[in-house]
């Protein structure tokens, strides 16, 4: 009896410690990336390449998802608001939920599974095939040449993707409510304009997606760089990237939202 309880408690303690250790390791790794970021900015071509792989190649999935999410928001919002006789406010609902929450969060989640896992797999594979060691022996630091450009590519790409996601979502909401459900177009835009604040909604949404970009890119490069150099090691690291980034995004979102709300009232 006592043994079972002790065992359970120990498991909780072990898990907590492991999580804290992991977070600490990622933060330390982030510090290392920043220290070795000089090359990335002196030779911006390296980063542009990674923006192509992380950003441009995620365009389709982000645009399509944004459109669908916006359309669903429009439909659901219309349904609910109509019973209060204020279906014109559906634009407000679509715009605010996209800018404040769904845009940054959903695009970051999609980015983590599309680009984050690819970054982990690529770096992990380079490690497993000794390409990172080889680079080190050629007196080129892999942190500066491989990791840092991928990190910055991710950090630059995600805010752009999130902005596109929001814009697509608003168009999707417009399509469903104005074109299909015949909500007045003027009311749709004017109510939205009255409710949306540049600083508090758009800028805060951007801040969120930049923070998520840093978190996902740091986790993805960390998992790849620290992956055990075997096939199972790399595939496990890829899975961990998606899981830990998703959790990190949601936890950071809660923190940031609470922080930003406190700034308002």
């Amino acid at each position: 009896m006592k043994g079972t309880w002790g065992h359970g408690l120990r498991t909780v303690g072990d898990t907590t410690l492991r999580i804290v250790e992991r977070i600490g390791a990622v933060v330390l790794f982030l510090g290392q990336i920043l220290r070795h970021s000089g090359t990335s900015f002196r030779r911006f071509g390296l980063v542009i390449r990674e923006i192509y792989f992380a950003g441009v190649q995620s365009l389709i999935i982000i645009l399509v998802s944004g459109l669908f999410v916006g359309m669903v928001l429009g439909l659901q919002g219309f349904e609910t608001l109509q019973s209060y006789g204020s279906s014109e406010s559906v634009g407000v609902l679509v715009a605010l939920s996209l800018m404040r929450e769904l845009g940054p969060v959903v695009s970051a989640l999609l980015f983590a599974s599309r680009a984050g896992s690819a970054i982990t797999a690529e770096i992990g594979l380079m490690k497993a095939t000794e390409q990172l060691s080889a680079m080190e022996m050629m007196a080129v630091n892999p942190l500066a040449r491989v990791v840092s450009p991928r990190f910055w590519g991710g950090v630059f790409s995600l805010p752009v993707l999130a902005t596109l996601f929001v814009a697509m979502g608003i168009m999707g909401g417009f399509l469903v409510t104005v074109i299909m459900l015949k909500v007045d177009s003027g009311a749709f835009w004017s109510q939205m304009q009255a409710a949306v604040d540049f600083h508090h909604d758009i800028v805060n949404g951007m801040i969120k997606s930049i923070v998520f970009g840093v978190a996902v890119s740091a986790i993805a490069t960390f998992e790849g760089y620290e992956a055990p150099p075997t096939a199972e090691g790399v595939s496990g690291a890829t899975t961990r990237t998606v899981v830990s980034s998703s959790l990190a995004i949601l936890a950071l979102d809660l923190l940031l939202t609470a922080f930003m709300m406190k700034g308002w009232n």
């Binding site: 380079m126 390409q131 022996m137």
Partner: peptide, 26 residues
């Protein structure tokens, strides 16, 4: 390490670069 060259067990060529770019890398 600039004075040292190393050949790894399976070559460890950079898979995202062409043969030319691999040799020109350093």
């Amino acid at each position: 390490r600039r004075q040292v060259g190393m050949l790894f067990q399976f070559g460890a060529l950079f898979t995202d670069l062409s043969v030319f770019d691999n040799v020109a890398f350093q």
